[in-house]
Design a protein around this nucleic acid. Structure first.
Lengths: 345, 345
DNA sequence: AATGGGACATAAACTAGTTTAGGAAGGGAG
DNA sequence: CTCCCTTCCTAAACTAGTTTATGTCCCATT
């Protein structure tokens, strides 16, 4: 007794018209007599029929959806407001195009598997490792693709800020204020692979930023290099990194690669009775928290929303068939003054 | 010269096997000789072929994606961390099922249109108005459907906290601390339609909460009713409401229906030199901000993540064909003490 | 030699729409 | 009366896969 679903053929039969006529009644009523349209729609109404959008999209060779490939598990990714900001930017563009946004988490722990199964017109990746399986998956699917935060990667259309310059600015601001003992809370995974680790892996934002930090130190003539503590871009990551930092020599300034790490760091420090910025300065990165524990967070604003918007717009261009003239699109960043960075000079 | 895409038929031809064999090679290699599988996969590799997931899903009558129907525009919705929290919960369940999450914004400003075009196996709606077109759209699409925050609505499978009780608790805590001049920052849209406004519209969370506020007042024998200021659940909404509140008689306590409204309210108040809680107390609702301007925000924690998880799990049950025994699933809430609510008794 | 079973392969139908190419009918012009 | 042009409509092919029902071949039993 499983009620087979009603199709265009049923409506055609009941109405005495052809499938073509029914299709036209829904999609281009002007190509058919007013009379026929009315009859067909009436019968459709009676039978609670509505054209199946998947069959429709399949037939038309489209999906009406853009994919957002999240770097880690969905749960972790969405805990980072910067990722949410980017998604929001993507979403607002999709909305204006009448597209949905498909959030694509790793499938069976594999990003490549997820790409292979994605039913979308194009994909925006963020913080992606370009391992060979991922490249292979994109190659086979022939899916238009834009990457956020994948500078330095050849042949990838990407959107990001100038991470090296932003990091250089961050470090410079700390050095200008007299800080010399500086710890860096960094990012995990591909992000800290150096350029020559593997030719198929993108160096990622972290190594670009590390170069920026180095350049700043060089300009100040400093040769005691900063120490890095790579952790996930989560509050817990920030806490964990601070624990490790405190078990080493205490720095005067902690530079983080993510506001949410800075949040975790500051909360942990204050719980330990270490005041920010009186005892330790902290700098964020992202520009998503203007206020942390009652203090304005000093940070780099990298306009997540704009990054998302730009990536989505570029992707729509590619889907339309227009290759963008420049592969790398740089979004301007700004340095955000804040109370969490103290002048100790 | 438009290169037609490679299909299973091309691989069948080149390999000398049938379409069936190619299909089996990818999906159930054990049903075909080892030899055939190898040959077919080799040719597929050479031609950069991979089965089209949309055609696959279409053929199998599934989508491998759950829809998340956002209440307002995507941009506004995602600015509210509570919505993000819910989405995160949905996403983590989808991820474990190997599903993607399709975020569905209104299509051409119409939620009904969006539903009609959604290519998903089921939909989770949040804060939805059940206007007749929306009901009609669901009826026609025969899509499994779970609604978050739609208590009181008959025949809808829903997940929420007990909004009336939560609000009653909120108001009671304010009254217990001696507050008598109380302003309520409420929610917009369907949310403040009373029960008899229209039979096709869900009364929504706001009216349930209003009943809770009233009950609390009655228990305290108060007959000067609280005044409500309905605005969007955004920071800007909170600011706007406070402006209006301040142009009326200044209350001793502002109860909001959303933490993000509370955030906007507190920031605006402090910018005006009005201290929280010394001059005015503020209560949030959601339990997403533990810290606002250096103060612990007093709020109701409604476990957005759990709401999302529960809704997704129920939806997967329905998709499997198991109707849930109880239509309404209540998630427990907790009252969060905080420094923004002062005892003035 | 006939029978049975397992392994392997495939033709054809099926998913639910869109679209192309063309046919039939009717009306107006030459 | 013929020709042509609309208007209205439809058969059949097309989207790219899966699946059912069947068939063939080969080998081991009776």
């Amino acid at each position: 007794m499983k009620s087979k679903r009603i199709t265009i053929a049923d409506i055609a039969q009941k109405s005495g018209y052809s499938k073509t006529a029914v299709s036209f009644a829904f999609n281009c009523p002007e190509r058919i007599s007013r009379d026929a349209v009315e009859k067909i729609l009436k019968i459709a109404q009676e039978l609670d029929y509505f054209p199946d959008p998947m069959a429709r999209n399949f037939s038309l060779g489209r999906h009406l959806s853009l994919g957002f490939l999240v770097p880690q598990s969905f749960d972790i990714s969405m805990k980072n407001p910067h990722v949410v900001d980017v998604l929001r930017g993507i979403g607002s563009v999709c909305e204006s195009y009448g597209y949905t946004i498909t959030c694509i988490p790793p499938l069976r722990s594999s990003i490549a598997e997820a790409i292979k199964n994605a039913t979308v017109d194009g994909i925006i990746g963020m913080g992606l490792e370009f391992g060979s399986e991922v490249q292979e998956a994109f190659k086979r699917r022939k899916l238009p693709f834009v990457c956020i935060d994948a500078i330095d990667e050849e042949n990838v259309i990407s959107v990001s800020i100038d991470n090296k310059e932003a990091a250089k600015r961050q470090m410079t601001e700390a050095l200008k204020r007299g800080h010399r003992k500086i710890a860096v809370i960094s990012l995990p995974g591909a992000a800290y692979l150096s350029d020559n680790d593997s030719p198929t892996v993108a160096p990622g934002v972290a190594s670009a930023r590390n170069r920026g930090y180095q350049e700043a130190e060089e300009e100040f003539g400093i040769n005691t290099p900063f120490k890095t503590y790579p952790v996930l871009a989560t509050k817990e990551g920030g806490e964990e990194a601070v624990k490790r930092i405190l078990s080493d020599e205490r720095p005067t300034c902690i530079i983080t690669m993510s506001d949410i790490q800075a949040l975790g760091a500051i909360e942990y420090l204050e719980r330990q009775g270490i005041r920010v910025p009186e005892d330790v300065s902290v700098m964020g990165f992202d520009g998503i928290y203007h206020n942390v524990m009652g203090k304005n967070l000093c940070s780099i604003d990298q306009r997540g929303h704009e990054k998302g918007e730009k990536a989505a717009e570029m992707l729509f261009e590619i889907i339309k068939g227009n290759e963008p003239e420049n592969k790398i699109s740089l979004i301007p960043f700004t340095f955000e003054e804040g109370e969490t960075l103290k002048d100790i000079s």
